[in-house]
């Protein structure tokens, strides 16, 4: 058996010889969800990264742990399955991707879509607003006709509103940090006085 300094490892009774390792099953690790965070009332949702999860409820829980823990302000969180996001082409700097879309918006309101814009390279997509359209292509055209664009948009993500899993407004207290959890902050570890006292004591000797 593997001998370790850690009693917990010893209790695992791991055989010393390399245990034959079966390759992981395909999709053993679940599909991915894109995560968006709203940090303040007057700020839009912004993409922060991904999580792996078997369903959207668990994606939400993982996202909360991974992207909105202490020190990371959050008032609302949403997750969207990666495959439900329609991604436009990317434009080069200074060119607006919307200018490359051809066609006319149908004006139909079959589905509701949410639109996210990328304005600057290296930054992340931000929520722009909601449009009604008959399909994804139509939603891009609707967005083109709806939003004023002071700065060129480099890339657009569009997703059906029904595919978004978002926190309820009354759940905001999920992100309140408890007073007794200050031990997770750097500010709780001041020690300059201790070093000073130590040096003075050394000096006396």
């Amino acid at each position: 058996m593997l001998k370790s300094l850690d009693p917990r490892v010893n209790r695992l009774n791991i055989p010393l010889e390399e245990a034959a390792h079966a390759q992981k099953n395909k999709l053993d690790q679940f599909e991915t969800y894109e995560v968006f965070v709203q940090t303040k009332e007057d700020k839009p949702f912004e993409h922060v990264g991904i999580v792996h999860a078997p369903n959207e409820e668990m994606a939400f829980l993982f996202a909360k742990e991974q992207y909105t823990r202490r020190g990371m302000f959050c008032i609302s969180l949403c997750v969207i399955k990666t495959e439900n996001i329609r991604v436009s082409d990317y434009s080069e700097n200074q060119k607006d991707i919307y200018d490359t879309f051809e066609g006319k918006y149908s004006g139909k309101t079959t589905y509701s879509f949410e639109v996210f814009h990328l304005i600057k390279r290296g930054k992340q997509h931000k929520y722009e607003g909601n449009v009604q359209a008959k399909n994804f292509e139509d939603a891009l055209l609707a967005a083109r006709d709806t939003y004023p664009r002071n700065k060129p948009v480099l890339n657009v993500w569009v997703v059906k509103s029904e595919d978004i899993f978002v926190s309820d407004e009354e759940d905001q207290d999920l992100w309140d940090t408890l007073q007794e959890k200050k031990y997770r902050d750097a500010i709780d570890y001041r020690a300059a006085d201790k070093i000073k006292a130590f040096k003075e004591k050394q000096h006396e000797h």
Binding site: N25, K26, L27, D28, Q29, F30, E31, T32, E34, H47, G49, I50, P54, N55, M58, T82, E83, I85, V87, Q124, H125, W157
Partner: peptide, 17 residues
Amino acid sequence: VREALLAPKTKYITPLA
């Protein structure tokens, strides 16, 4: 745990950003 939660019909796609 992973097997219990597995959704057999899902397909993996590379995340976006």
